[in-house]
Design a protein around this nucleic acid. Structure first.
Length: 139
DNA sequence: TGGTTGACGATCA
DNA sequence: ATGATCGCCAACC
């Protein structure tokens, strides 16, 4: 395995810090960027462990599910609404679906740079490089 | 040791 | 477009 526990967290934070303002990306894409595509769920875990007074700050609110929906932390929690609030405060247009979920238009705000084009900041085993995909498209 | 959980993702009906 | 399932994988219980 390329990354180890602490390194995984560090890599996640480093990548999230590079998400530009008014842009969002997905847990899964961050997992791909750090070379561990099957660890999308753990990206969320890492953000959960994140301390609010982290320095430099980590814009955790710019990370959502691949469908552009703000992940519900469960009934009775305010995490999702706080995330929506932070996004709106940045100028991101957040809509509410019929089911009550907060949704962001990835075609407009999505940030999905090609794997390898972002600095991870931690040691990564040579895994052979394949570039693909685009880099954030505006509409 | 074994089953459940979770800030997920891709498929299929 | 929406909801149900299955696949992932470490942390818990």
């Amino acid at each position: 395995m390329p990354l180890d526990g602490d390194q995984f967290h560090a890599a996640v934070y480093n990548v999230v810090r590079q998400i530009p303002p008014q842009r969002v990306t997905s847990y899964g894409h961050i997992a791909k960027l750090i070379g561990m595509p099957a660890y999308s769920r753990h990206v969320g875990q890492a953000l959960k462990f994140l301390s609010p007074n982290a320095n430099p700050p980590v814009p955790w609110h710019r990370v959502l599910s691949s469908s552009g929906i703000v992940s519900s932390r469960g009934p009775g929690t305010d995490g999702a609404s706080r995330q929506r609030d932070a996004l709106v405060a940045e100028g991101v247009d957040v809509t509410t679906t019929r089911a009550g979920d907060f949704k962001i238009d990835l075609r407009q705000y999505g940030w999905f740079p090609a794997v390898g084009s972002v600095e991870i900041g931690v040691e990564v085993e040579e895994e052979g490089g394949s570039e693909d995909d685009d880099a954030a498209q505006e509409d």
